[in-house]
Write a protein that binds this DNA or RNA. Structure first.
Length: 423
RNA sequence: GUGGUCGUAGCUCAGCUGGUAGAGCACUCGGUUGUGGUCCGAGAUGUCGCGGGUUCGAGCCCCGUCGAUCACCCCA
């Protein structure tokens, strides 16, 4: 019988790489927590209409990338392709928008898009996102960007850049698109490209072909059509980014894949990732809440691709710590029961302990200790149990010190410099 | 949905113009009494992705199929 295989295009993590994935995700979440964002744990499937209305009927995401199915009650259900629409639904449903504003939440989990997989693109992928709802102020825009930037810096990433733009309000965009279409009508395009331009003229700015790019050089840019208020907000965003020492470049041809963005929009791009270089992006969405049946509230948020961020760390050669490394490895010599009991006592004190099971010779046991990556090891045989004294060995240096079994936990806690931080 | 590349041991791969399958790493055991990493020795491992065809003979050639991967469209 053929062996089972994971479905096409899913990203999954097993040891040892899973420890790095966990660390990357944890770092991003921590960056959100230190800024006061609270957990929103939501379903991975929703009413299909939530996405078609929220994300936008004309987007590729809705038109051809959703995993949609009918449940047993005949309802149309879709696996979430992004996080913001679900958060808005939950905020409205639980009346969070009636309390203190802004509502600041983060989420983390799997998302789904039925695309052809390639490097950095998966059908099931992981995102951590945050949303700040109910406040239209450049300060919160910049706080959101800072949460992402801080996470990247904490991870040690350097080869990424922040691109920002302003998409203006709905009216501005409408007026601009009319002008852009007029311009596009004047340039020669093949049928396929023309069809794309018809659907969303902004996409031509992203075209990979040099001839198209150069023709778009002199196209009108949205920035020139912004209202006074939008222009001022955008200026403030730049001013505040500078205040916080966050580097950025203005990209007034940025294309966003989701329809709901207005005003500030941004994207983090990494240079060493191949075709899928975006590691995260987001922006302000003014009309979304109302569109989904809630109050007229503005919001801003981002989604960061955990898979791609891990790939970026690897591409930069960053050596990531293993979030839950072992402190101690116990090698029993015919004393398995006692060793298990000692391990449990230490674990209750929060020390990370593993031990050799089965009847291993000393040499084999020490080999296991070595490969476990534990900082320390002890051997427990009849002698140690009789005397109550063990040799606590530091694996890296090979040095060992005599410690009584009763003082072992305290000794380890004192020695482990990062104690209390590794969870 | 479209196109390129690739499927040989757990991993990375070699295998000459077709002659009955190899290396390195990893793994297990050992190098005389209870201390790992280096070194030395021994050992286990494959329906050469799958199906068909050509041939005396196919890992190698042909057709199909499945899978992986990268790119396009689009996007985290």
């Amino acid at each position: 019988m053929a062996r089972f295989q994971a479905p096409k295009g899913v990203s999954e993590y097993v040891p040892a790489r899973s420890t790095y994935f966990d660390y990357v995700r944890g770092t991003i979440i921590e960056s959100a927590r230190v800024a006061g964002y609270q957990l929103m744990e939501l379903p991975i499937f929703e009413d299909t209409e939530l996405f078609s209305r929220g994300v936008g009927e004309s987007t590729d995401v809705v038109q051809k990338e959703m995993y949609t199915f009918e449940d047993r009650g005949g309802r149309s259900i879709t696996l979430r392709p992004e996080g913001t629409a679900g958060v808005m639904r939950a905020v409205i449903e639980h009346n969070l928008d009636r309390g203190q504003l802004p509502v600041k939440v983060y989420y983390s989990g799997a998302f789904f898009r039925a695309e052809r997989p390639q490097a950095g693109r998966f059908r099931q992928f992981y995102q951590v996102g945050i949303e700040a709802i109910g406040l239209a102020d450049p300060r919160i825009d910049v706080e959101v960007i800072a949460v992402a930037d801080r996470a990247f810096k904490e991870l040690g990433l350097t080869k990424y850049r922040l691109e920002i733009t302003s998409l203006g309000d709905a009216l501005t965009r409408q007026n601009y698109l009319v002008e852009l279409r007029k311009y596009i009508a004047t340039i020669p395009l093949d049928a396929e490209t023309a069809a794309r331009a018809e659907l969303n003229p902004l996409r031509l700015f992203d075209d990979k072909r040099e001839e198209v790019r150069s023709m778009m050089q002199s196209a009108p840019v949205l920035m020139d059509y912004l209202t006074g208020e939008s222009t001022e907000d955008f200026r403030r965003v730049q001013e505040l980014l500078n205040l916080l020492g966050i580097n950025f470049v203005i990209n007034n041809r940025m294309v966003r894949g989701l329809d709901y963005y207005t005003g500030t929009a941004f994207e983090f791009v990494h240079s060493d990732l191949g075709a899928q270089s975006g590691i995260g992006g987001g922006g302000r969405y003014d009309g979304l809440m109302a569109q989904l049946g809630g109050q007229e509230l503005s919001g801003i948020g981002f989604g960061l691709g955990v898979d791609r961020i891990l790939m970026a760390c690897e591409a930069e050669g960053i050596s990531l710590p293993e979030g839950f490394g072992l402190d101690l490895f116990i090698v029993p010599l015919g004393t398995g029961d006692a060793a298990l009991k000692i391990a449990e006592n230490l674990r209750e004190r929060g020390i990370h302990v593993d031990l050799a099971f089965g009847d291993k010779a000393l040499k084999g046991g020490m080999k296991s200790a070595d490969r476990s990556g534990a900082t320390y090891s002890i051997v427990i045989g009849a002698d140690e149990l009789d005397s109550g004294i063990v040799a606590l060995k530091e694996m890296k240096t090979g040095e060992s010190t005599s410690v009584t079994l009763s003082a072992l936990a305290q000794e380890l806690i004192e020695r482990i410099s990062n104690f209390g931080e590794h969870s």
